[in-house]
Design a protein around this nucleic acid. Structure first.
Length: 638
RNA sequence: GCCCUUGUAGCUCAGCUGGUAGAGCAAUUGAUUUGUAAUCAAUAGGUCCGCGGUUCGAAUCCGUGCGGGGGCACCA
């Protein structure tokens, strides 16, 4: 006699076991129509599964996350059904729900083509129309394994074998087609609607392991209405428009070429942007008590062997052999060089914490498939720093780094920051007792910062645990940027010591930190976040002076000179084009301010400002303009 | 690195089933002297990514290398 409690606290009493459908029916006809899935005491279940005991239930519709995810899960099943109907002999593997959609991995020799995707989609719609009824059965493990093996579904058989014995093996039927699945599912294939689209095919390793064979993954998206599907497709389109590779070309910032895959050829404007970020950072770090150093790009093999990089990071390192057969490595990290600067001369406990920053260009041989515009390159500049301190100073120093990072992100327009904590990886140097200490200290600092954090098991650097600072951009994407690592290993390996109060030499702790992480990557993120419309102070080309006709060229030249003298970057457009043409041209190039001058301006010694994306005109006294905007530049402020 | 896909003028792209290439924009020149997102005309511009092969003949078909893109794996 189950007592059913609804989310609003209302109780319904049933004489016998009851299904979600029956509960929905009792509540309202419209809910019965819309109901997709039910949660029973916090566990999601099929609507037709029987509830025999008292329970707290919630019925979900397509408006709920749970309902939408079930729709997506069902769409994945229908995809698998359609594929097996169209391409007999294809094996199914797994098909989970992901952000905005789902995928399904298949094992099949011939690749799926774009044409195949279209055919599959048509078949899927057909299956929705057929409205096949869903049925769940619990099978005996051995029988299930046997069954799938017989069908030639060796991956499914393997999956069942790996299900813990404590769990039951549930098989879902949609008509005759069936699949091993935890569920829950909608009551029939007609329920998912037709607001889905197959997006792309790609390769994916079986069980995510690159030692395994590669399967074919079909990605799809699925929604509860046409409106939502359209909105999603629109969102993707918008994201493509702000792709930094496209904008970088349009804005003439940088390019890549075959001779050096994964390395940037910076153009004048891109390099200006780069230097502006560094100038900003220098000021911030100076205020925060850092001193800047610089160390060699190429260092003898022996140093990398001592530091552990040769062994643990060797696969990613470029090496160089000199004519006299000496082996050098091009630095993939700045830390060993920095420790050598610390090692030069005698250091006292009074010097600690000692904060050394370096804009170090590092080279890492990344797998070719990983490269992606500025966001993943083989040569990049880290805004690196190493803080040498005592164990007692770790927490305080970590906190001050965290605050600095948050402040800098905020200045650049990123307020949403997430922390990720990573502890010891399998491949590492140092004693476990040392790792215990490092991890504890870093965790303490995170807790003290009171920020939210997630834990990534086993993803720390080979020399120490780390925090990663992930920022969320204007359209909700996450980017990993800053990093902070506690290192109780490297200083000892490289023989770093300081003289303590008691006159005894001790090994300092080293904190590695980068704020933007990679300048290259950060610029990519900045471009995408702002769609190329960078804040004034950071824009590589801040103004273009446009005379209305050649009669005003002299006045335009004077303004151009004044701007240069005031430290505002500018170009002057004396080309033989009309005003509309020039405005369009420089607007597309994302110049924040266009300064128009004609008779009116000459007579009054003013400029007319046209801001990017605004067709309002603002007339301003020239002197006032120079004062206002050069002040913004000096303050690194919008 | 792996799977799929792709590589034609500075840029964006046409070029059907093999007969050595075109458009728009940009550039150059000339006309126009323009008040807030494309004035008109003319000219010039290409080892069709590299290397092999098939063929009388290859941008087009095949092989291979390199690069780009989407994923996977790896990662700042």
């Amino acid at each position: 006699m189950p007592n059913i409690t609804l989310p609003d606290g209302k109780k319904l009493n049933f004489e016998e076991s009851v299904s979600g459908l029956e509960i929905a029916e009792k509540i309202s006809k419209s809910l019965l129509k819309q109901a997709l899935v039910i949660s029973v005491n916090g566990v999601l279940q099929d609507l037709d599964s029987k509830i025999k005991e008292d329970a707290q239930v919630t019925i979900f519709t397509s408006r709920d996350k749970e309902g939408l995810e079930t729709i997506r899960h069902d769409t994945a099943h229908i995809l698998a059904m359609a594929v097996q109907e169209l391409f007999p002999g294809t094996q199914v593997t797994i098909g989970p729900v992901i952000d905005d959609g789902f995928y399904y991995d298949f094992a099949r020799k011939e690749p799926f083509t774009e044409e195949d995707l279209k055919k599959i989609e048509v078949k899927m719609r057909e299956i929705v129309d057929r409205d096949e009824i869903t049925k769940k059965e619990i099978w005996n493990r051995e029988k299930a394994i046997e069954h799938f093996k017989k069908k030639g579904e060796i991956y499914k058989a393997e999956l069942i074998e790996s299900i813990p014995h404590s769990e039951e093996v549930s098989i879902y039927f949609h008509g005759k087609w069936h699949d091993l699945c935890r569920g829950p599912h909608l009551s029939s294939t007609g329920k998912i609607g037709k607001y889905f689209k197959l997006m792309k095919v790609s390769g994916a390793y079986w069980r995510g392991d690159s030692n395994n064979e590669m399967l074919q993954r079909i990605y799809g998206t699925s929604w509860s209405s046409q409106k939502e599907l359209d909105a999603y497709l629109k969102r993707i389109e918008e994201a493509e428009k702000r792709d930094h590779r496209k904008l970088g070309k349009e804005m003439d910032l940088f390019h890549f070429r075959e001779e050096s895959p994964g390395s940037v050829f910076w153009h004048e404007k891109g390099w200006t942007l780069f230097q502006k970020l560094i100038a900003y950072m220098r000021k911030k770090q100076d205020q925060a008590g850092y001193g800047e150093i610089n160390t060699p790009e190429i260092l003898d093999r022996s140093l990398w062997e001592k530091s552990g990089h040769w062994e643990k990071f060797g696969e990613n390192m470029y090496t160089s052999t000199t004519p006299d057969e000496k082996v050098f490595a091009i630095k993939p990290m700045n830390c060993p060089g920095c420790v050598q600067v610390f090692n030069q001369g005698l250091k006292s406990y009074r010097d600690l914490p000692l904060k050394m920053s370096e804009f170090g260009k590092v080279h890492r041989y990344e797998p070719s498939g990983a490269l992606h515009g500025l966001l993943r390159v083989r040569a990049f500049t880290q805004d690196d720093a190493h803080i040498f301190c005592t164990e007692q100073q770790i927490t305080e120093e970590c906190l001050s780094v965290t605050n600095l990072i948050l402040e800098i992100y905020k200045d650049l327009g990123f307020e949403n920051v997430i922390l990720k904590y990573s502890d010891r990886p399998d491949v590492r140097v140092g004693e476990d007792s040392v790792w215990d200490k490092s991890e504890a200290a870093l965790l303490e600092a995170i807790k003290a910062s009171k920020l939210e954090y997630s834990i990534n098991k086993g993803e720390g650097a080979f020399y120490g645990p780390k925090i990663e600072f992930v920022l969320r951009d204007a359209i909700g994407r996450d980017w990993q940027c800053g990093t902070l690592q506690v290192d109780l290993n490297l200083p000892g390996r490289l023989g770093a010591t300081y003289v303590d109060k008691d006159g005894v030499k001790k090994v300092p702790v080293m904190l590695h930190r980068a704020l933007f992480g990679s300048l290259e990557r950060f610029i990519g993120i900045l471009i995408e976040n702002y769609s190329g419309k960078l804040p004034f102070w950071i824009s590589p080309l801040q103004t273009v002076v446009i005379p209305i006709s050649s009669d005003f060229d002299d006045y335009a030249k004077k303004i151009h000179r004044d701007l240069k003298n005031a430290g505002i970057s500018s170009e002057i457009d004396l080309k033989n084009h009309n005003l509309n043409y020039k405005i369009r041209d420089h607007s597309l190039a994302k110049v924040p301010l266009l300064l128009i001058c004609g008779k009116k301006e000459v007579d009054s010694n003013t400029v007319t400002i046209r801001k990017l994306d605004s067709n309002k005109q603002e007339n301003m006294d020239l002197k006032e303009f120079l004062k206002k905007y050069s002040a913004l530049n000096k303050a690194f402020s919008i």
